[in-house]
């Protein structure tokens, strides 16, 4: 029973990490209509920036996380306004440039830091225990930070004018522009917000999970799984799906072992595609 609860806690903290990634991913899709193949790249690069600031430069870890977030937001802003913006009308071209940018990012990391995983330990060690339940402090801190970030994103999306503009755009682009919202001006902002989140997640999570140039691949695949499950473009759908994915992964790792967890998830996604193609909370596929 205790290990069941402990595994649940791990699942929830995994879920909160996936939520941050999936929220960014789904915001970019909802607002810009772009599938961001570079999302995993921002995650990994965030991890490396934090590693460089914290381990090499000796800056405090929280500062390193902030710097990772800001630099990835800045990089996202630049990428969006210099490259993505120019092809934003052509969905296939947006796919190509984000994919190309991911390859460039991954190669750049490889050239700068090498293929070896660097030593990037979480600064806080130790385990919290209550009876038979163990939960590492590191996971607890990450969980707290992720939950705070999720609350921040929800506040931004549902309580501010910027968020209202973003939601209007993800629901109906022509209407939003007709209402005089500065559609285009929101694009780089939304993109930077999402990539900043990805970078911050990388900075927080890679010390616990793994830091290596290629970990972005699987992050991307998991983001895809999450949004297919939750419904592409749905903020709440992404959140629910991310926690489902996290819990399944955690329990499968303990009780089934190996990569069975991933296979379970794939099976789940296939079933979802059969019975509810628009995802758990996606709207009826819109045809106009």
């Amino acid at each position: 029973m205790d290990s069941f609860i402990a595994t649940g806690l791990i699942g929830i903290s995994l879920g909160s990490q996936y939520t941050l990634l999936a929220l960014g991913f789904t915001l970019i899709f909802g607002i810009l209509g772009v599938v961001n193949f570079a999302h995993g790249g921002f995650y990994v690069m965030g991890g490396y920036v934090a590693y460089y600031c914290n381990v090499i430069l000796g800056l405090p870890y929280p500062v390193a996380v902030m710097l990772a977030m800001l630099s990835m937001a800045a990089l996202g802003w630049l990428f969006e306004s210099l490259i993505l913006e120019r092809v934003i009308e052509d969905h296939q071209a947006t796919l190509m440039v984000t994919m190309g940018f991911y390859l460039v990012m991954a190669t750049a990391i490889l050239m700068i830091f090498g293929a070896e995983s660097p030593q990037f330990p979480f600064p806080v060690t130790g385990v919290w225990r209550l009876g038979g339940i163990y939960f590492p402090y590191a996971n607890m801190i990450v969980l707290g930070a992720c939950l705070a970030a999720i609350v921040f994103v929800y506040w931004l999306v549902y309580r501010t004018n910027i968020g209202r503009g973003m939601r209007a755009m993800s629901e109906d682009l022509p209407v939003a522009s007709a209402l005089g919202m500065r559609t285009k001006a929101l694009f780089p902002f939304a993109f930077a917000l999402a990539t900043g989140l990805a970078g911050g997640t990388g900075a927080l999570v890679t010390p616990i999970l793994a830091l290596a140039p290629h970990v972005g691949d699987s992050v991307l695949a998991f983001s895809f799984l999450t949004v297919i499950l939750g419904g592409l473009g749905s903020v709440t759908g992404a959140t629910c799906a991310a926690f489902i994915v996290g819990l399944i992964e955690a329990y499968a790792a303990v009780y089934l072992g190996g990569s069975k967890g991933a296979l379970t998830l794939f099976a789940l996604v296939l079933i979802i595609l059969v019975v509810r193609p628009q995802g758990l909370l996606g709207r009826e596929v819109r045809r106009s």
């Binding site: 490259i83 190509m96 991911y102 460039v104 190669t107 490889l110």
Partner: peptide, 16 residues
């Protein structure tokens, strides 16, 4: 190691 980066650049250039 290097070819993915080259491919990525080429993809971006061709697309743009």
């Amino acid at each position: 190691e290097m070819s993915p980066g080259l491919f990525g650049l080429l993809i971006i250039i061709v697309t743009l």
